[in-house]
Design a protein around this nucleic acid. Structure first.
Length: 289
RNA sequence: CCUUCGGCAUAUUCUCCUU
């Protein structure tokens, strides 16, 4: 049983849904997790219909697959079905509530999200982070502040969302002070601030902050380098970009992704090095998606 | 001699190119 579900997951994550289905169909007994894993497999491969079919066949669906379907329909843009399922489900836990809250938030319905948060039996950091992001996206920074002030505890994801909200709205002074005020910072914190600078044309600040990040021993990831390269691109800093592009692999073992190549090609093009841009594109170790 | 993992649902950071 354990190994079968493990295999289903493995096949699904490699895009082999048919193989996953075969394993599932051969199982004599299927416990909750087996069903859940199969549903997830369908969803990962963007087969919502198949997921729904599997879901309908579960003899006694528990809260996990119900929540999974609520989330999946919302993600596919079918908020109505998502909400209907949420109303119908036999029991709901904090994850279910958060999934529905997130569904409203993603759809841009801040009011509905807000009402959801008010009605929740037990809001947690997931809930608050979602709400902060929704309010920020709607430009309601005052409400964000109110919400954050009312929270019982500090949480890094919530703070990261607040920081990103300021960035999104171009409030770089506020973003900076949020960043500075944070007692602990993770890679997302640094990334958000670096990308914020990059997006708002503070190229030098972005690059300086990146250097500080490394100096403080925080490991940059692939997204950090997107921010750095975007900063270089907007400011036309070709040599800096070249150095970082090489450095990401040599210093941090990060293989450049299509995004990074894209930035470099963009920058080379802007710098009038069309030939080099072409060469770089040709050397990309990616299939042309 | 010692040692980890293991198969499930929800949140925060993404460079795109739509002229």
């Amino acid at each position: 049983m354990v190994s079968s579900t493990a295999m289903i997951t493995a096949y699904a994550s490699n895009g082999h849904l048919q193989k996953a289905k075969q394993v599932f169909d051969r199982m004599n007994q299927r416990d909750d997790r087996a069903w859940n894993v199969m549903i997830q497999a369908c969803i990962k491969n963007e087969e919502l219909g198949a997921a729904w079919q599997a879901f309908s066949r579960i003899p006694q669906a528990t809260v996990v697959p119900w929540t999974c379907m609520v989330h999946s329909f919302a993600k596919s843009g079918d908020l109505a079905t998502s909400a209907a399922l949420f109303r119908c489900m036999p029991e709901r836990n904090e994850v279910s509530w958060n999934a529905m809250l997130s569904a409203y938030a993603q759809s841009g319905d801040v009011e509905a999200a807000w009402n959801m948060l008010a009605k929740m039996p037990a809001a947690d950091a997931f809930s608050w982070t979602t709400m902060v992001a929704a309010l920020s996206a709607a430009g309601k920074l005052g409400k964000v502040q109110e919400l954050v002030d009312s929270l019982p505890e500090q949480n890094i994801a919530v703070s990261n969302a607040v920081l990103s909200g300021y960035v999104q709205n171009g409030e770089m002074v506020q973003a900076r002070s949020t960043f500075k005020g944070m007692g602990c910072r993770d890679t997302i914190t640094w990334n958000a601030m670096i990308e914020g600078y990059a997006q708002n044309n503070f190229s030098r600040e972005a690059i300086d902050l990146f250097k500080l990040m490394v100096l403080e021993g925080v490991k940059p990831d692939s997204k950090t380098y997107v921010g750095v390269l975007v900063a270089c691109t907007t400011a036309g800093k070709l040599e800096e970009a070249r150095a970082q592009f090489v450095g990401m692999k040599e210093d941090h073992g990060l293989a450049p992704s299509a995004q990074h190549y894209c930035c470099m090609v963009d920058l080379l093009g802007r710098s009038g090095k069309v030939g080099e841009a072409q060469n770089l594109m040709d050397s990309m170790p990616f299939s042309p998606d």
